[in-house]
Nucleic acid binder design. Sequence first.
DNA 1: AGAATTACCTGAGCGC
DNA 2: TGCGCTCAGGTAATTC
Length: 267
Amino acid sequence: MPELPEVELTRRRLEPDLVGKRIERVEARIPKLRLPIPGELATVLPGRTIRSVGRRGKYLLFDCEAGWLIVHLGMTGFLRFLAEPAQPGKHDHLDICLGAGSVLRFHDPRRFGTVAWTTDAPAGHPLLAGIGPEPFTAAFDGDYLFKVSRSRRVAVKQLIMNGATVAGVGNIYANEALFRAAIRPDRPASSLTPRECERLALAVREVLEESIDQGSTYRVAEETVAYHPLAFTVYGRGKERCTRCNGALEGIRLGNRSTVYCPRCQR
DNA sequence: AGAATTACCTGAGCGC
DNA sequence: TGCGCTCAGGTAATTC
């Protein structure tokens, strides 16, 4: 389940393989993922060189001279650079064919991913325009979180999972950050104090950063589709005990998402 | 404007 | 073995 750390690691993994490569051909095997795959990719990309691989939230941005290829991995999407690709298999939906037979291949069983194209600055694209500050920038801090939460009655977990609040935080890291900040996930956002907002902003940055650091040392076996394995503190441990107080963790549903927290440590 | 709900998908796991 | 059910979850689109 790619969230910001997995997308950032994907970016770092792909960048050295892709930058400077010339696109020869584009093969889309299905017309749409969650949204239609732009038909013009097949005509506009060939002949272009990939200049850089960037990221905004959970979106990857490939600078292709004539415009930007925008890719979201959804739930199960995976991008691989293959120097000597095998025949495309099930769920290999898109190939960006590069020099010497190599390929950038998009694999996505659930098809929740997105592929888009823009000739203007990607920040202005409708998919990116409404995204909030990057968690590692100065714009995302306790003051900001306090300000944007004042008029919001939704649960604080839903607020930080909203991409318009902060970029890149999904269900897993929302759970983890709230545990670290010792804040109950179901607290109305507007009930948070400035001090709690400060703790939460810090916790969000920390859990994301630590995940990236851990994943940087993880190597995916050739031809394997996998994100780096992580030991989470609360996520997926609804029936286990709190690592801090040894009390029983509690699993609830919030906005139809599985939520786990410690009722004793998180208030 | 904010909140809630729906739609999009397949594979894994489970009870029977 | 296989059927039907539930769950996983990002986010755009839709509705209230």
